[in-house]
């Protein structure tokens, strides 16, 4: 466990958030932006804001953007080269971990994620080299930390709740619908763990998947519903490995038998394993009959 040495020197307080309507000195005015919704796109917008000295009032993916009545909205084209410059440059203002936490904030898909990221970067720059990532008294910093906790939990849940089915050609495939866009975060875990089998994890909501071919893990997009790999339940029995149904039944058998009826506590059960995940969990699928505790013969009987 990490312990803080008592009596750490108190640091200089960071500039409080500015009052509404007041711009930081390096901005001449404010503006509204749209971009293509990619992370590189957002970084390009950040650079554009700095260059034009415009404080962003709104940064929104095209299509999702709701233009204010009078406001003029500027669309920024994604430029990987410029995005990289910003990404590298961030390290001059914050440690690597804080920079990663901004990427994760982006993956949260919150509607205010772009502004949150911009504001965090701005705070870090204004702090002039001081690490702000533990300044939890600041709302932006705390929000970013909380979002990161949520993302970590969702990533951890995916590592737990993915259920592979084996097809006749040896591919292990799974379908998921995570709350946040966490597939990029779980790739490493699955690649290390399942090094000797081909696997595919498909995010049905976002229409893309991770595919590991025994050499490397790639992101595969599926444009139309038609070439999406059919989801778990939709894969017809014919293409499954012949022993797949056996192991699914055995897993259900196991799940029912580790339960201790005298301790039944569905509240706790649902708290750990919320209902929205059940549809992809083999052990929560309906079965002909539940496996009852072993009816041990007893002398008395």
């Amino acid at each position: 466990m990490q312990r803080h040495a008592p009596g750490l020197p108190a640091a200089v307080p960071i500039t409080a958030l500015r009052r509404p309507g007041e711009l930081p000195p390096s901005f001449r005015s404010s503006g509204r932006f749209t971009y293509d919704g990619s992370f590189d796109g957002l970084l390009t917008v950040v650079l554009a804001c700095w260059e034009q000295r415009l404080w962003p009032e709104a940064i929104q993916p095209e299509g999702a953007a709701q233009g204010g009545l009078f406001a003029e909205t500027q669309h920024i084209e994604t430029d990987e080269e410029r995005a990289r410059r910003v990404w590298d440059g961030l390290l001059r203002h914050m440690p690597g971990e804080a920079r990663t936490s901004l990427y994760k904030t982006f993956l949260s898909e919150r509607p205010d994620r772009e502004l949150l990221i911009f504001r965090y970067v701005q705070l870090a720059i204004e702090a002039g080299g001081q690490d702000i990532s533990e300044n939890f008294g600041n709302d932006t910093v705390r929000l970013v930390a909380d979002i990161n906790k949520q993302l970590f939990r969702e990533k951890h849940r995916m590592e737990a709740f993915v259920r592979f089915e084996k097809s006749h050609d040896g591919l292990f495939h799974a379908t998921v619908e995570p709350d946040f866009d966490v597939l990029p975060l779980i790739a490493e875990h699955f690649t290390k763990r399942y090094a000797d089998q081909r696997w595919l994890i498909f995010d049905r909501r976002r229409g893309y998947g991770l595919y590991y071919d025994l050499q490397r893990t790639d992101i595969l997009s599926f444009d139309a519903a038609s070439d999406a790999p059919r989801s778990g339940s939709a894969v017809s029995a014919a293409v499954l490995d012949e022993r797949e149904p056996l192991f699914q039944t055995l897993w259900q058998t196991y799940f029912d038998h580790v339960n201790i009826p005298e301790r039944r506590n569905l509240k706790l059960h649902r708290r750990h394993m919320p209902k929205r995940y059940w549809r992809f969990l083999t052990e929560k699928q309906p079965r002909e009959r539940r496996f009852e505790p072993i009816q041990n013969k007893n002398n008395a009987a």
């Binding site: 951890h156 590592e159 737990a160 709740f161 875990h189 290390k192 763990r193 399942y194 090094a195 000797d196 089998q197 196991y254 799940f255 580790v258 339960n259 201790i260 301790r263 039944r264 506590n265 569905l266 509240k267 706790l268 059960h269 708290r271 750990h272 394993m273 969990l281 052990e283």
Partner: peptide, 30 residues
């Protein structure tokens, strides 16, 4: 660590893959 190209990796934190109806963690085939 999985450094023999085999199956599995046990270097991270433990994972509860499921929970029984009494709310206990199911992590291992016990």
């Amino acid at each position: 660590k999985n450094d023999n190209g085999g199956l599995g990796n046990a270097e991270g934190m433990g994972i509860c893959h499921s929970y029984t109806e009494d709310g206990r963690c199911v992590s291992l085939l016990k």
